[in-house]
Design a protein around this nucleic acid. Structure first.
Lengths: 349, 349
DNA sequence: CTGAAAGCGCTAACAG
DNA sequence: CTGTTAGCGCTTTCAG
C-alpha cells in the first residue's frame, strides 16, 4: 500500500527520475509523460518520503524557531512577541511550503543559545533558523551568531553585530510616538510603566520616551518611571497608588504592553480613579486585549503579522541563495513600521 | 569541518556502527571504546544528520501537531486550548526528545482535516500526530480517523469513534461544578454565556449546567443563556444589558472562558453594576487572565499542562509500541481532572 | 527530453 | 563485543 516512487514510476511507465522531475516542476518534461505521472501519483496516493528527499537534496523544507531567554515558558510569555507573531511565522512558512519546527533546543537561554542553534542547524533538521530575542538576553549572548554560515534571521534588537540579518520594530520610535501623542493631548506630566530597563526593549522605550519629552521641553522625574520584572496581582495597585500620591504626579502613562495596561486600568479603577479623566493611558503592542478593555486602550500597533512574514521571507531568501552568495556580506536590517491606534484611554478630543 | 559519522569513527579507531551504538546507548559496548568514541564526538562536534538517521531508522523523532477547525488563526484562537496547552506539548515532547512540527497541513478545517493528517503521516516527516479539536469541528469530520494506522491522539471531544485514542477534560463536569458552586453560594437564577451550542464543548457545558440546576430543583430560562460565535467590543455590553433588564434576571453567570468573563466584567462595570454583589461570575479555563481581573475571577482550572503532557506521553507510547501491538484494539480515553479555583468574582462568604 | 547509475549519511542485520 | 555489508527512498549527475 505504501506507494514509493518506484511503484509510481512503474505504473506510469517511466523512470523514478522522471517522476521526481514532474513532481518538482522541472520544465523539460513532455506533456504526455507529465499527464501519466500525475495520474499515477493520484491513483496511488503517493507522498514522497521527506527523509529520503531531504537526505538526497540537502534540504529539509523546515524552518526552526528558537526563542532566546524565554526560560521554561516561552509560549506563555506574554511579551514582547506573542502568539500573533508565532502565527504569522507559521502562516508565512506555509505559504512558501516550509514547515515550522519547534525543537527542544528552542528553549535555550542566553548562555547555551548559540550552541543550541548551531546544533539544530548542524543536524540538518532545518534549513535555517529564526531566532526570537525575548529582550532579556543580553547582547553578549549573540557572540558567535555572526559566524554561523547557515541562514539565520533574528527578530528583535541587537547592537553589536552588523553581519546579522534581522527584522525588528523601532522600539524607541514606538515609545516616542506614544509619548508625543500624550503630549499632543495636552499632558506635561507623563510616566512610563514596564519592564526592567536593563532589557533591550525597555532601554529603547526609555530613550524614545525621554527624547519625546526633551524635544517638547518637558521634564520628568525618576519616580514617574516604574519598572519591574514580574507583576503579581497586587503590584499594579501599589505602583499606581504610589504614583498617584506623588506631590507632582503624572497625568498620563505609557504602559509597555497591553497586559500591563490592563493591570494599571484595574488598579486605577479599584482606587477610584477614572481613565482618561484622572489618568490617560497609552499602551504598546495593540494586542487583541487593547480593544476589549474599558475604556478601550490607545495602543501602538507593531504589525506582528508583517514582522513575522518579513522574517520568514528573509530567511527563505537566504536559504535559497545560500550557495550563490559568498558569506554574509549582504546582511540587512529591516524595520517594520508601527502606527498609533487611538482609542479612548488617551483622552477624547 | 562537517564531521560525519565516518570521520568520527576513524578518529576513534572504530567502525561507524560502533559510533552509532555508543550514541544510542547500546548496552554491549566496552568502556574503553565508549570513551574513545565520546572523545572523538566531543572533539569533532559531531551532530548526526537527522535525515539520514530518520531514513535509515524509520523514525523521525518528530511529533506533528494538527489543529482542526481553527481556520486561519489557530494560534491566536483564544479558545478552548490556547498557548498553555501548546507549551505543555512542546515541553513534554522535549523531555522525551521529540521535536514538534507545525506543518502547513496543520491549518486544516474539518473538511480536509483527515486527508491532511494522512498526508503528514505518509510523508514520514512525523512519527505520530496530535490532533487538537477546536470544538468547531463537527464530529462527522473525524470519519476515517480510526482507520489511520499510525499513532494519533486526539485532544478534545468526540463521540462516535471508540477506537480513537484521546485525552480530554470532562467538559460537562466542568460546567456542572461551576454551576454547583454558584448554587452553593445561594444563587438560584443562574445564566450561561458563551459559544454557540452547536459546538461540542458548548453542548457539554449546557448539559452540565442543566444537570446541576435540575439536581438542585432549580429552573432556568432560555433568555439566561447567551451564545454567540463572535464577541466584538459592543456585544458584551448589549448582552449584559438585556440580561439585566429581564424581569426575572439571573444573579450569577457561568462564562465559557476567561476572555468572555473579562468582557462581561467590563460591561457590568460600565453599566454600573458590581461584581459579585449585583452579579456573581464563574469562568472556565483559569488562564493567566483570571487572576488579573478586578475582581479576580473564580474559574475552573482544567490543567492544560497535564492535558498536554498526557497526550504526548500517550502518543509516544503508541509510537514506541506501534509494531508490537496489532491494530488499535487497545484504544483508550483519558480524562484530566479539573478543579475549581475560588476567587472573588463568585462572591465572598 | 528521459533513463541509468551513484550516492546522500546513517542504521541494522549478520558475521566473526 | 565489534566490523562488514546492505540498503532506507529519493535526487542528481551523466549519458544517450
Amino acid at each position: 500500500m505504501k506507494a514509493g516512487i518506484k511503484q509510481v514510476a512503474r505504473r506510469a511507465g517511466v523512470s523514478p527520475a522522471t517522476v521526481t522531475r514532474v513532481l518538482s516542476g522541472h520544465p523539460t518534461v513532455g506533456m504526455e509523460i507529465t499527464r501519466k505521472v500525475q495520474r499515477a501519483v493520484a491513483v496511488t496516493g503517493y507522498q514522497p518520503n521527506r527523509m529520503a528527499k531531504g537526505l538526497a537534496s540537502h534540504r529539509a523544507g523546515v524552518i526552526g524557531v528558537v526563542m532566546l531567554g524565554y526560560g521554561e515558558a516561552p509560549l506563555s510569555h506574554p511579551h514582547p512577541y506573542g502568539k500573533e507573531l508565532m502565527y504569522s511565522l507559521v502562516a508565512q512558512a506555509r505559504r512558501q511550503n516550509f514547515d515550522i519546527l519547534i525543537s527542544p533546543d528552542s528553549y535555550s537561554d542566553g548562555k547555551t543559545g548559540m550552541r543550541d542553534i548551531k546544533r539544530l542547524l548542524q543536524s540538518r533538521r532545518v534549513d535555517g533558523v529564526i531566532v526570537l530575542n525575548s529582550g532579556k538576553v543580553v547582547d553578549a549572548s549573540f557572540e558567535g551568531l555572526d559566524e554561523i554560515n547557515d541562514p539565520v534571521v533574528l527578530i528583535g534588537p541587537h547592537r553589536r553585530h552588523p553581519h546579522i540579518w534581522s527584522v525588528d520594530t523601532d522600539h524607541a520610535g514606538v515609545a516616542y510616538d506614544a509619548t508625543c501623542h500624550l503630549i499632543s493631548r495636552g499632558h506635561t506630566h507623563i510616566g512610563l510603566v514596564g519592564q526592567p530597563l536593563a532589557q533591550d526593549y525597555s532601554n529603547a522605550w526609555l530613550h524614545g520616551y525621554e527624547r519625546a519629552l526633551r524635544r517638547h521641553n518637558l521634564k520628568w522625574h525618576d519616580e514617574w518611571i516604574v519598572a519591574r520584572e514580574e507583576w503579581p496581582s497586587g503590584a499594579y495597585r501599589s505602583a499606581v497608588s504610589s504614583l498617584m500620591q506623588l506631590q507632582s504626579r503624572p497625568t498620563a502613562l505609557v504602559a509597555s504592553n497591553d497586559v500591563v495596561a490592563w493591570g494599571i486600568l484595574g488598579a486605577l479603577n479599584e482606587l477610584g480613579y477614572r481613565v482618561p479623566e484622572d489618568m490617560a493611558l497609552v499602551s504598546l503592542y495593540n494586542s487583541q486585549l487593547a480593544a476589549l478593555s474599558n475604556p478601550p486602550l490607545t495602543s501602538v500597533d507593531m504589525d506582528m503579522e508583517r514582522l513575522g512574514r518579513t522574517a520568514v521571507e528573509m530567511l527563505i531568501h537566504k536559504i535559497g541563495g545560500q550557495y550563490d552568495e559568498g558569506g554574509q556580506s549582504t546582511a540587512g536590517r529591516f524595520v517594520i513600521p508601527h502606527r498609533l491606534i487611538v482609542r479612548e484611554s488617551s483622552g477624547i478630543l
